[in-house]
């Protein structure tokens, strides 16, 4: 907290100006948050909703933070913690009541940027793996996505999930073993 100059640009920008800093935060972590959301939820539209909600909550939270707390923030782990909370809550409420919010705009179910050829390629390779991921138990799926899709180090996953590093490693390795079994000899 004493030495603001040695902070990464995102946190420095957040301390400078909340709104400009938010743009930096979004730019730096949009891919990580979206990829995690997409591979956890398995649906493009849900991933967009989850990502938007995550950054919105992050903004509202950081608006109330002291400068010291912002300076001490680990933005990536913090954002992913928010995402996982929202995702778990969503999954829980969805299982209870399905009605959608009528005030929200409808969302596309596919990536609008994707060409037909890209979609075909993805269908052959990524989709199978993504589908296998969705068959993993939640603990293992989260751990595998964070470790191998978005490439988080084990200690950061431990922070996000608030579990010991050893437990992270065992979730990851069990998840991988299961994926290999599901996919035959990969």
């Amino acid at each position: 907290m004493s030495d603001i100059d040695c902070l990464d640009p995102v946190r420095k920008a957040l301390l400078d100006d909340l709104d400009g800093g938010f743009a930096e935060l979004f730019g730096a972590y949009r891919g990580v948050v979206f990829s995690t959301a997409l591979r956890l939820s398995g649906r493009w539209a849900d991933a967009e909703d989850l990502t938007a909600e995550t950054f919105l909550r992050a903004y509202r939270a950081v608006a109330g933070y002291e400068r010291e707390r912002i300076a001490a923030l680990q933005p990536r782990a913090w954002l992913l913690t928010i995402l996982l909370n929202i995702w778990r809550n969503c999954a829980r409420t969805k299982s209870r009541k399905p009605p959608p919010d009528l005030h929200e705009e409808p969302v596309d179910t596919v990536d609008p940027r994707e060409s037909v050829e890209d979609a075909a390629v993805r269908h052959e390779t990524g989709d199978k793996l993504a589908e296998m991921l969705s068959m993993l138990p939640e603990d293992q799926r989260v751990a595998v996505v964070l470790r191998h899709v978005v490439d988080l180090p084990v200690h950061e996953i431990a922070t996000v999930l608030r579990i010991p590093q050893g437990t992270v490693k065992s979730h990851v390795s069990r998840g991988l073993r299961r994926l290999r079994t599901l996919g035959g000899v990969q």
Binding site: G31, F34, A52, T125
Partner: peptide, 21 residues
């Protein structure tokens, strides 16, 4: 398998910021 998992990472769609900010 690990290469396949890493390839599942993707960037967020461009219009997403406009839904937030």
């Amino acid at each position: 398998l690990l290469a396949g998992l890493a390839a599942l990472a993707t960037d967020a769609p461009d219009g997403l910021l406009e839904r937030i900010a």
